[in-house]
Design a protein around this nucleic acid. Structure first.
Lengths: 226, 226
DNA sequence: GCGACGCCTTGATATAGGTCAACCGGATGA
DNA sequence: TCATCCGGTTGACCTATATCAAGGCGTCGC
């Protein structure tokens, strides 16, 4: 399985590679392998040695951790056009989480060691990386206080609002691209609770639920709730 | 107020500056100011433009966010010998959190823009930074799943075990260096709940509480509980 | 077509933890 | 010295959410 020109363009648009010269990019691509995952196929496990970082071409990757009890907590959902595991690369150690697909997924695996070597000679790229990682950390700070400061219902509403296609105020409906139980885990609640929260919002006429299609009847009111 | 030689040594031991040459360090110090805070004095607020990053010489800084309700959540406690706000620096924007002292604190404020300039010309430093930020992100991932996967009691136990002076298995007692209500917020629980958890552990003979001194009677049992 | 399964929903119940209120003891300050 | 305040503790109560259990509705393979 190989990279076609559209994939390469896609990759170049991702922030990590945008700062590379043509020859550097060439080198990175030599060390890149395309992988295809069937739904639910694991990519790596928490504790595996970190040899690659990844870019999602199509599909969705679920990053999650296992509690000692066996319960799993979804930490992040990585969709087409995004890198992941690039942070682990710099620790030169092991992946801190599990990664697996939740639908048919094509992704690019890029060689960590080769890329590190590249970064050593490219201060500009380095700064971009620092900035990007700062942004991720910022996102995590938000996540931490969402989890600890807001109620389950507020987190659900926040999630729905996040999924709104940006810009268009009129198009106030959302298609859930992952199963509801995955969203529940992402939000740190049980599937039953998610279902109840949605039912309650439906009862208040704030939303309409048609399977994985959710219409937000009153975006402003929802925004006020959180 | 100025830096004395001990302070400078202290600073050089911090990871961010260890990779600098003598002349680079010189430059950084020219742009450094020592600040002294009384207990509870604010340093910056969430949303303030990010002009400096900091190093704690003595004392403790509390990083926290305010919920819309006015409730505050302690995100981190920064003690002597650690940098903070270095991530915000790379975003070139605003501080994402509030910072204030919780006791008399001496710290060094370092000029962000000057430091960024330096990093641009030092790929090695850059890599160290990337690695350090990865570690922080790793810590945040742990924090997120602690908050969402573990009970309040487990988080309390985890906190106590973290505070144990490393290495020495015999010395199984902990002195709480910050007020209990700050720890409670750090752990995402109420002060009353923290108090009850400690009372319960005391009832099980697992710990002894003497004001801010906590003796861990059975470290292994505690570790098993989480 | 039919059973099995997965996903979601709904109801009943249990429980962790939050909230409110009272109280204690030490520190502070008039 | 006494009043006050602050941090911590304890009790009573309540609410949000988890847990357990049942059932509905698609989808898939046979």
């Amino acid at each position: 399985m190989n990279l076609d020109p559209a994939d390469i363009q896609h990759l170049k648009d991702g922030y990590l590679l945008a700062a590379l010269s043509a020859s550097e990019l060439e080198g990175v691509l030599v060390h890149a392998r395309v992988r295809t995952l069937i739904p639910g196929e694991p990519l790596f496990d928490q504790g595996d040695p970190c040899t690659d970082f990844f870019f999602v071409l199509t599909g969705t990757i679920k990053l999650c951790r296992m509690a000692p009890s066996g319960e799993e907590k979804v930490m992040d959902l990585i969709r087409s056009g995004y890198f992941f595991a690039e942070a682990a690369m710099f620790m030169n150690g092991c992946y801190p989480i599990n990664a697996c697909s939740i639908e048919a997924t094509r992704l690019v695996a890029l060689d960590s060691r080769h890329f590190i070597g590249l970064v050593k000679n490219n201060a500009d790229l380095c700064l971009r990386l620092l900035s990007k990682m700062s942004q991720r950390m910022h996102g995590m700070i938000n996540e931490i206080d969402r989890l600890s400061l807001h109620s389950g219902a507020q987190r659900v509403i926040g999630y729905l609002l996040e999924q709104l296609p940006g810009g268009d105020a009129a198009a106030s409906s959302v298609r859930l691209s992952v199963p509801k139980h995955v969203i529940a885990s992402r939000l740190g609640i049980q599937p039953e609770t998610l279902s109840r929260v949605l039912a309650k919002l439906r009862g208040q006429q704030l939303i309409e639920v048609h399977d994985d299609m959710i219409v937000l009847n009153d975006v402003d009111a929802l925004r006020r709730l959180c």
